[in-house]
């Protein structure tokens, strides 16, 4: 009973972490994505560099960089916050590329029409382009959410108590208290739970993709 409660807490932690990362990444990703289209070459190349860098690095490395570097810079946060920052950085770089792709896929007549109506470029983005772009990138954002839920398991490596970690602790506890190992059963359960979370997401993403085609 106590173990199942502990596991449930782990699931909640995992979900909280993924959703908070997605929210941060959406805001940052749309910002960076729009900046990638900026006329100023310096700004656009910095934004592109950010996306390329964090899409190129393995998530584990980003995670370690955040986890080990922040204390050196005098910022002390726990592993949950470190994981949140690292995963947000990673997913925002992915979202920014999706945003740029979506913006580029919108016909230029939309920009011209908005301009001729007297909208500023800021207003054009806000009221004309982004609402359309958002619908086009929705499938990839849902796909990313599923990816994000799976990537949160990496926070185990820096000691965050997510679902996988709680499962490991339950295995250890049972092993100490009762002898025999239940690693096999628990890991099957873990696989099942992640599948139940991610499968609907990927089906949803696939369906959205088909409906936009």
């Amino acid at each position: 009973m106590k173990n199942s409660h502990f596991l449930l807490e782990g699931v909640i932690n995992t979900l909280l972490l993924s959703i908070s990362c997605l929210c941060i990444a959406l805001i940052a990703g749309i910002g960076v994505g729009v900046l990638q289209m900026a006329k100023n070459r310096l700004i656009s190349s910095i934004a592109r560099g950010y996306a390329e860098l964090f899409r190129g690095l393995p998530i584990v490395i980003t995670l370690f960089i955040v986890f080990f570097m922040l204390p050196e810079l005098g910022i002390y946060v726990n592993s949950y916050i470190s994981a949140m920052i690292a995963l947000s950085v990673w997913s925002s770089s992915n979202i920014s590329v999706a945003v740029r792709g979506a913006i580029q896929s919108i016909p230029p007549t939309q920009f011209e029409a908005a301009h001729s109506l007297g909208l500023s470029s800021m207003q054009t983005m806000r009221y004309v382009i982004l609402p359309q772009a958002f619908r086009r990138m929705l499938p990839s954002i849902i796909g990313l959410l599923s990816n994000l839920v799976q990537s949160t398991t990496l926070s185990v490596l820096i000691g965050n108590l997510d679902f996988l970690k709680s499962a490991q602790l339950v295995i250890e506890r049972v092993e100490i208290m009762q002898g025999g190992s239940i690693a096999f059963q628990i890991y099957v359960l873990v696989l099942l739970v992640y599948f139940v979370i991610c499968y609907p997401l990927s089906i949803w993403a696939k369906r959205l993709e088909r409906s936009y085609r």
Partner: peptide, 10 residues
């Protein structure tokens, strides 16, 4: 639909 790290541990 399941994380690679869980496959590895499994």
């Amino acid at each position: 639909n399941t994380p690679l790290l869980v496959h590895i541990f499994f």
